[in-house]
Design a protein around this nucleic acid. Structure first.
Length: 596
DNA sequence: CACGAGGTATCAGCCAAGCC
DNA sequence: GGCTTGGCTGATACCTCGTG
């Protein structure tokens, strides 16, 4: 164990409830293993440890690590793991009685407690919560901790010992905080939820930490919009015509209060949703007339929606991708019922299709954003053709579009892009990827003999999943939050990536909203240009300085008691908040400050 | 009039459980 | 065993309303 890891574990060794906060990639799992070992040694037969991971992927990783570790150290220690995906469940009760260490996904524990298999948390002597920043709202973690606080605050519990709580996280500051006080509030809330008075970070061994955790380079690229784009004009024309048609059926302007809807914007999509919702409850006199109008309006708006989508795709990818998207939709319409209205609608598209095809196949310049992306990739692979990249995008449609763009580009098709997306949702038509197919993509990307050099991903791959070989991360119009960025960084640098990691981001500021977007990514970049460990440890050198933190400690104190009172109120118990109240503020003002 | 807080809708995702 | 469903999460964008 490294010195800084010992430092992180120190308060836990003293038996205190602790939140351990350290950057990804520094070996928090090693700390967790050491804590278990120490705990088993001290408690002897009375020890019963539960380790929880929020996701099945992570659960599998950690479970295997625990098994391997203790197999080597002390084969007498019994370990078992339970997660939801295993079909035939062993009884939680049996598992608990026959093992010293139990690895779980938290829902299992919640279920077992609800079902009475586990009478109380006092059965355990140590709870470890991985990714403990999830302890909010109705997350299973919070349900467990609510029950813990319940037990702690009820008098009957006096005779029994509640388990020690240890939380692990890369960053306490998850949540939508915008400023210092919200961040503090958030942290206090978390500490209260975890009944923890200590946030353990690395104070003294920062140099050693720096030598293990690598900070990547970051670059931002600004790209201009296309100067002229006939595609947009043509689509606008079609949309205007469809709106005109719709107006002959019903006064659609009276249906929605949403104004200033521009073609190709999210607001337009909202307007469509609104109109569709309203037209279901039109309340016309004639029932038949009503269903006819409703049906027609639905058809019109559905087409408008697709054209709107196409404009959005056109914005970030090739015109061809947008056109393909429309073609698929039109073809679907034709294959289905295809009544009179729809025939007229598809005729609009067919009328322009020749021109549009012409635009997408030749004359028109491709999207400048893609030019920039192509340039970056070409440069990178010229310098090092062993590079493995992950390209983050916001939507699935864009992931598909970029995949086909790379495959059809002569200078880039050697990259053999893979796509990693999530499961999908009941409302969306797109079928997502199952857990196994994701695993397959990930494995083939990780293996070196495979030809795939780039992985296009939505936000699935950003948290907790470990892609050690990756040394180039591209964010294509993708502004993640701080936590995500930190974890992305951690993931790249894990196991010492072959090359220096470069973290690049393609954005462009043309309209105002986009320049705001840009400044947001800047502030993100600034906040991570100081690694989290630094901003937390060297609080004196940060904007939120020591004196400030002292003067703020009063208000922090108040907030803590508030948040604790809240969680007490939630758990509907009589308050004995004084016992929990005071120490939290101290440890927070000492050890945590988040720069913004 | 500008700004921020609060609410809503949509996107993205996760897990467990039930169905075929 | 794979697929779907239901309940949960957070992030973002937008609207509305209150306040200075």
């Amino acid at each position: 164990m490294r010195e800084y890891q010992r430092e992180l574990a120190e308060p836990v060794f003293q038996g205190k409830n602790t939140v351990i906060c350290a950057p990804t990639g520094c070996g928090k799992t090693v700390v967790a293993l050491a804590i278990c070992e120490h705990h088993l040694k001290v408690k002897g037969k009375g020890a019963k440890v539960v380790f929880m991971a929020t996701k099945v992927d992570v659960f599998n990783q950690q479970y295997k690590l625990f098994q391997d570790h203790f197999q080597e150290k002390d084969p007498d220690i019994r370990i078992d793991g339970l997660c939801g995906n295993q079909g035939d469940q062993l009884s939680m009760k049996v598992v608990m009685e026959n093992n010293d260490i139990i690895v779980l996904t938290p829902q299992i524990l919640v279920n077992a407690m609800a079902g009475g298999e586990i009478p109380s948390l006092s059965c355990f002597s140590l709870l470890i919560l991985d990714e403990c920043h999830n302890t909010t709202g109705k997350h299973p973690y919070n349900i467990i901790m609510t029950s813990y606080l319940d037990a702690k605050l009820s008098k009957e519990q006096n005779g029994q010992h509640l388990p020690q709580i240890v939380g692990l996280t890369a960053s306490v500051g998850i949540g939508s905080f915008k400023n210092q006080s919200e961040a503090e509030n958030n942290i206090c809330q978390l500490c209260a939820s975890l009944d923890s008075r200590i946030i353990s970070t690395i104070h003294t061994n920062t140099d050693e930490l720096q030598s293990y955790v690598h900070t990547p380079d970051k670059e931002f690229f600004l790209v201009e919009k296309r100067h002229t784009d006939p595609f947009i004009r043509i689509i606008h024309d079609i949309m205007a015509k469809i709106e005109g048609l719709a107006k002959t059926v019903y006064n659609i302007e009276s249906l929605s209060a949403i104004e200033n809807r521009d073609y190709g914007s999210q607001k337009y999509e909202q307007w469509i949703v609104d109109v569709q919702k309203k037209c279901r409850v039109l309340q016309l006199k004639d029932q038949e007339e009503e269903s006819r109008v409703c049906r027609a309006l639905y058809n019109y708006t559905e087409h408008l929606r697709k054209y709107n989508d196409a404009l959005i795709i056109n914005e970030d990818a090739r015109t061809k991708d947008a056109l393909d998207y429309l073609s698929v939709f039109i073809q679907q319409v034709k294959n289905a019922g295809h009544d009179e209205t729809e025939q007229r609608l598809t005729a609009y598209f067919d009328g322009q299709q020749g021109v549009l095809r012409g635009l997408s196949s030749g004359g028109q310049k491709e999207n400048p954003k893609l030019d920039m992306l192509q340039y970056i990739l070409e440069e990178q692979y010229r310098q090092n053709d062993e590079t493995k990249s992950v390209l983050f995008v916001r939507t699935r449609a864009l992931a598909d579009a970029l995949k086909s763009w790379i495959e059809e580009s002569d200078s880039l098709k050697f990259l053999k892009p893979g796509v990693l997306i999530g499961r999908g949702h009941k409302s969306s038509q797109l079928t997502g990827m199952t857990l196994n197919s994701k695993k397959g993509v990930l494995d083939s990307f990780k293996s070196f003999d495979n030809q795939s050099k780039i992985l296009i991903a939505t936000s699935v791959a950003d948290e907790g999943i470990d892609i050690p070989q990756c040394n180039l991360v591209l964010m294509y119009e993708y502004v993640g939050n701080v936590v995500k960025m930190v974890q992305v960084r951690g993931n790249q640098s894990m196991h010492q990536s072959i090359n220096q990691s470069i973290n690049q981001s393609i954005n462009y500021s043309a309209s105002q909203s986009q320049s705001i977007n840009q400044s947001a990514s800047h502030s993100v970049s600034q906040s991570i240009s100081q690694p989290v460990s630094q901003s937390i440890n060297q609080s004196a050198s940060q904007p939120f300085s020591q004196s400030a933190s002292q003067s703020a400690s009063q208000s922090v104190n108040q907030r803590v008691s508030q948040s604790i009172n809240q969680s007490i109120n939630q758990s509907a118990s009589q308050s004995t908040s004084q016992s929990v109240n005071q120490p939290v503020s101290q440890s927070i003002s000492q050890s945590v400050s988040v720069s913004w």
